[in-house]
Simulated scan of single mutants.
Amino acid sequence: MDEALKKAAVAWVSVADGPAYAVWCLSHGDALYVVSGPGEQSAPGLADARTARVTLRGDHGGRIITWSAEVTRLDPDGPEWTEVAPLVAAKRLNAPGTAAELVGRWATGCAVNRLVPAAGPATHGTALPDGSLAEPPRETPATRRTRRPFRLHRVRRR
């Protein structure tokens, strides 16, 4: 599990019995750090959760381990925030503004969560399901109906 945790850049996180969401993350020490909130990625329920399920992928792109995590929300005034938040901000791709501005925005409106493996067994190897576990796409406000073309066939000019 330690090797998968060190290499993690993307994780699938589910809270309670909800669906798993793919989130980008930063591996630092023995934990994964995930940012969620307005203007950042969606991870419903993670900001206030105490536990979550985390699935990590291997070099081949498939899942290699699933484990239970203890979730802790970082306090913007705490010492861990000053150490970790700039590291997470540096990892954030296509961030609007500087890393310092990003950390300031996270302090006021987003959640930076620390996910640490909880005591208990992790599911890996042959214990993982054989199927894909694929689900149909979820409803989202980001979709829109496509318009039909004005004309279906080419019109000849005379």
Score class of each variant (00 low, 15 high):
Arg57Thr: 15
Ala95Ile: 12
Thr72Arg: 14
Gly125Ser: 02
Val54Lys: 00
His28Leu: 06
Arg148Ile: 06
Thr82Met: 05
Pro86Lys: 01
Thr140His: 03
Pro76Leu: 02
Gly18His: 10
Arg147Glu: 09
Arg154Thr: 11
Arg63Trp: 01
Pro19Phe: 01
Ala142Trp: 03
His153Thr: 15
Leu115Trp: 05
Asn113Tyr: 07
Arg147Ala: 14
Phe150Lys: 14
Trp106Asp: 09
Leu56Arg: 03
Arg138Lys: 11
Ala89Cys: 13
Pro121Ile: 02
Thr140Leu: 01
Leu5Val: 14
Tyr33Gly: 11
Thr140Ser: 07
Gly120Lys: 04
Gly109Gln: 15
Ala16Cys: 12
His124Glu: 12
Ala134Asn: 11
Arg53Gly: 04
Val34Phe: 00
Leu5Cys: 11
Glu83Ser: 13
Glu135Gly: 01
Ala142Cys: 11
Pro86Cys: 02
Arg158Leu: 13
Pro86Gln: 04
Ser42His: 07
Asp75Gln: 10
Tyr21Gly: 02
Ala8Asn: 05
Gly131Met: 01
Leu26Trp: 12
Ser14Asn: 01
Trp81Phe: 11
Thr98His: 04
Cys25Glu: 06
Trp24Thr: 15
Ala8Lys: 07
Thr66Ala: 15
Thr108Asp: 07
Leu46Thr: 11
Glu135Cys: 01
Val34Arg: 05
His153Arg: 14
Val13Met: 00
Ser14Tyr: 00
Pro117Met: 05
Gly37Ser: 08
Arg156Met: 07
Ala8Phe: 02
Ala90Gln: 10
Arg144His: 11
Arg92Gln: 15
Asp30Cys: 06
His153Asp: 12
Val103Ser: 03
Gly97Ala: 00
Trp24Ser: 15
Ala118Ser: 15
Arg57Pro: 10
Ala90Leu: 08
